[in-house]
Simulated assay, not measured.
Amino acid sequence: MTDWTGRRVEAEVGAVAHGGHCVARVEGRVVFVRHALPGERVVVAITEDKGGSFCRGDAVEVLSAAPGRVTPPCGYAVPGGCGGCDWQHADGPTQRALKAAVVAEQLSRLAKVEWPVEVEELPGGLGDWRTRARMAVDRQGRVGFRAHRSHRVIPVSYCVIAAPGTVDEVVTRTWTPGAEVAVSVDSTGRTHIASGSRVLGSSEAVERAARRDWRIDAHGFWQVHPDAADILAEVVGQWAATPSGGCAWDLYAGAGLFAAVLAEQAGPDGSVVAVESDRSAAERGAENLADLPAVRVFAGKVEDVLAAEALPDPDVVVLDPPRKGAGSAVVDAIAARCPARVVYVACDPAALARDVALFAGHGYELRALRAFDAFPMTHHVECVALFSR
């Protein structure tokens, strides 16, 4: 088959697909097109073709625009530019509709579940929300972001989605060529920067969520949208409904955000098991939750801890796995203990759908789902799902 890389073709853009692109068909092949919207007619520059039934490309000219199209507010969000944002060419309602369509399609295709999905807007709009970023440094010592599906660094002088106190604090400095730069701003407004052995600010950040202060690694895991942690904690608490004196598990517990909510529900006579694979995060979690005697924190892989420890049977299980999802070993271990409810926090629709199917195999049905636009301008979406037998 002829390599299409570098070729330009006209295409009618079809449905949105998971990953920040839409699907078009040209001469019998599928083309995954970025910088396009469903229903448009565009000129596509093919950027990647490894043979087979599909290739990838960028919409470099719009012949017929969709109603939700806007001019990207960032000059780097163009074909061949920064790969960090996927939907700057769409207005807010269109972005959320695209994400809802992806979540619904993944549930239908991978879990055989038909579910109407609405992606809810978070406060603050589409820009200035990202409180944590990892950036790359080019050969001239300029900091930037990588191009889509590439190691090529795109130097930047600003970022429209970055919160004040992050990208703006590092773009005026010169860095070690080839290095990475981590920058964050915490709930107190303090900026934290690290690049190799170079540390500016503190290695500890203070975040505020669920009516508590959290001391965490300044460059470790925390929700990047400033309102996401509070909103997720609220939904998890509502759906978990841990009985007073009951037992709850918080798997992939991080700094302990959900464990704190569960402990308040269970009370001093209850029990909360928090499991976190990153030892540093687990230690931070134990420190953050020291005033809640019901909580026990275990450091280790979730599947290993569930297999090795004599844990009490849970009334409810909360899990917030990494992007790849929980997988069969963890789902099997949860189902074997027969909790009344499972509350699942997901950052990847495909992984969520795969695990929905696994839970269904154990008799747990999807009862409720909420989705949040915690990552505006990107294809990412945060979901919370409730399961019960």
Rank of each mutant, 00 (worst) to 15 (best):
E283V: 15
E287R: 15
E264K: 09
V295N: 06
G270N: 02
G246D: 04
I216W: 02
G246C: 02
H225D: 10
V318C: 10
Q238C: 13
A229H: 08
W222L: 09
A233N: 09
F221L: 00
L232W: 05
L292D: 05
L251G: 13
V305G: 07
R279E: 15
A308W: 11
N288H: 13
R296K: 14
D250L: 09
V317F: 04
A310Q: 15
P268F: 01
P243Y: 06
D250W: 13
A253P: 04
V302G: 12
W249F: 14
D313G: 13
S244G: 05
P312Y: 11
V318S: 10
S277T: 10
L292S: 11
H225I: 03
P226W: 01
V261W: 01
R279T: 14
W214G: 05
W222E: 03
L311V: 11
I216D: 01
R212I: 01
A286N: 06
V235N: 08
W239G: 05
G256T: 02
A263R: 13
S280E: 13
G267P: 04
R212M: 11
E309P: 08
R211H: 12
L311D: 13
L292K: 04
G254L: 03
F221K: 07
A310E: 15
H225Y: 07
A210M: 13
G246T: 03
A281Y: 08
L306A: 09
V318K: 11
T242G: 04
A282S: 08
V297K: 10
R208V: 12
A240P: 14
D227Q: 13
V206C: 00
P268N: 03
E287C: 14
A240I: 09
V317C: 07
P314H: 08
H219I: 07
D230Y: 07
N288G: 14
L319K: 10
C247G: 00
V305F: 11
E303R: 00
V317P: 12
A253W: 11
A209C: 11
F221I: 02
D227N: 08
A266P: 02
A255I: 01
V261S: 00
D250M: 05
V206R: 03
V261G: 01
R212H: 09
V297R: 08
P268G: 05
A281M: 06
E207D: 12
S277V: 08
A290C: 11
V224H: 06
A290L: 14
A218Y: 10
D230K: 03
G254R: 03
E287W: 10
E309W: 09
W249K: 15
D313F: 05
D269W: 04
A210P: 10
D291G: 07
F258P: 01
A205Q: 00
F298Q: 01
P314C: 06
I216V: 13
G256K: 02
L292N: 06
V318Q: 05
D227S: 13
V236T: 06
A253D: 05
P314Q: 01
D227C: 03
D313E: 14
A308G: 14
D320G: 08
V261Q: 08
A209I: 02
H225Q: 12
W222R: 08
R212E: 03
W239Q: 12
K301C: 07
D217K: 01
V206K: 00
C247R: 01
D250F: 13
D230M: 10
F258L: 06
V305Q: 12
E303Y: 03
W249Y: 15
A274Y: 07
F298P: 00
L251N: 15
D315W: 00
T242Q: 03
